[in-house]
């Protein structure tokens, strides 16, 4: 009975406009930071602003970005992040390589995604049942990495599939497939969080899990689905990597977990949950890639690059913390 159109109130529309302006302001702020950085960097090193280099940056951001986008579901749902992404990536890479070399590309792809969903469910149900995502994913990470080594017999698994090779190296309309998939993931995941019931449930559970449970939402379902998203995203990244190099190994992506988490944090997604969007994780990944690229072009040593990216994450956390205090 509330679904009658005639009781629209103009005051309510004004209110929603205020909220929209707030979002717009945040987006503009983010873009300004990036443009300013790109301009300054472009002056000091002209290579930085070439179109080719832009592709390099987006491509570099793609792989981390896809995982960060998927990881943002966990953060938004109030489950912080997973420390198992890199290990899961290695396991998925090995599974994809093994199944593709045995059954061919299409069946291999399907089986791999099946395994990814199962891995997500296993983690999600564990976390939903026993709490702490950090400890649980740390343990699962070891399981995944170990199983990847077992499955691959600790050696390189090679594949020979033209379809996979196309996926890994093609450039439709001059843009690498990885970048297309990265942008597609960002859009789809943004739409899921913003426009679907599941997305709203994810936000509400992150905002206040007790109120979510009291409102009759299923926390275990939301947590599990967030882990499934995270696992599927990781699987997409791992498959693209195997496709590109036609091989997989159990020690792939070693030490990448911080990069994924850094992208989520630099994107400004609150660790407390219930706020933010996967699009922010994508922007975070691009920002870090820009910085990395600039430092590479200017010959910064790897140690210095690492220091600076770490410092950026610390700065990002502090700035967003202070800003949140101000807004309230």
């Amino acid at each position: 009975m509330f679904l009658t159109k005639n009781d629209h109130q103009p005051i309510a529309n004004e209110a929603s406009q205020a909220a929209k302006q707030r979002h717009l302001r945040n987006a503009v702020l983010g873009l300004c930071v990036m443009t300013a950085f790109a301009t300054i960097a472009g002056f000091s090193n002209p290579t930085f602003t070439t179109v080719d280099n832009l592709f390099v940056v987006i491509r570099a951001a793609s792989m981390t970005g896809i995982v960060a986008i998927a990881m943002s579901f966990l953060t938004i749902s109030g489950n912080l992040f997973a420390l198992s992404a890199s290990s899961l990536g290695a396991l998925i890479a090995v599974v994809f390589a093994v199944t593709t070399s045995s059954f061919g590309f299409p069946i291999g792809l399907a089986l791999t995604f099946g395994v990814a969903v199962l891995c997500g469910l296993a983690q999600g149900i564990t976390v939903a049942g026993f709490g702490n995502p950090i400890i649980a994913t740390l343990a699962f990470g070891t399981v995944f990495r170990g199983f990847a080594a077992y499955l691959s017999g600790n050696s390189i698994v090679r594949i020979d599939s033209p379809a996979a090779l196309w996926l890994g190296t093609a450039r439709p309309f001059g843009v690498p497939t990885q970048s297309w998939i990265f942008m597609l993931c960002a859009l789809v995941c943004w739409a899921i969080i913003r426009h679907t019931k599941l997305g709203r449930q994810t936000i509400l559970c992150g905002s206040n899990p007790h109120a979510a449970r009291a409102s009759g939402l299923n926390l275990a379902f939301v947590t599990s689905s967030a882990f499934v998203f995270m696992s599927v995203g990781t699987a997409i990244m791992a498959i693209l990597n195997v496709a590109q190099f036609s091989q997989a190994k159990a020690d792939l992506f070693w030490g990448y977990d911080f990069d994924y988490i850094a992208a989520v944090l630099v994107g400004g997604i609150a660790l407390s949950g219930g706020k933010g969007s996967p699009m922010q994780a994508a922007l975070g990944a691009i920002l870090i890639a820009l910085l990395q690229n600039y430092m590479l072009l200017n010959g910064f040593s790897s140690g210095l690059r690492m220091t600076i990216v770490g410092a950026l994450v610390v700065a990002a956390i502090s700035v967003f913390h202070i800003m949140q205090g101000k807004v309230r």
């Binding site: 709203r200 449930q201 509400l204 905002s207 109120a211 979510a212 009291a214 219930g274």
Partner: peptide, 20 residues
């Protein structure tokens, strides 16, 4: 504790039990 979603807007709070 469990009555409101403090960090979300009023309409988002009001629709929480009625998402379906």
């Amino acid at each position: 504790h469990d009555g409101i979603f403090a960090g979300r807007s009023v309409p988002e709070n009001l629709s929480a039990p009625a998402l379906s």
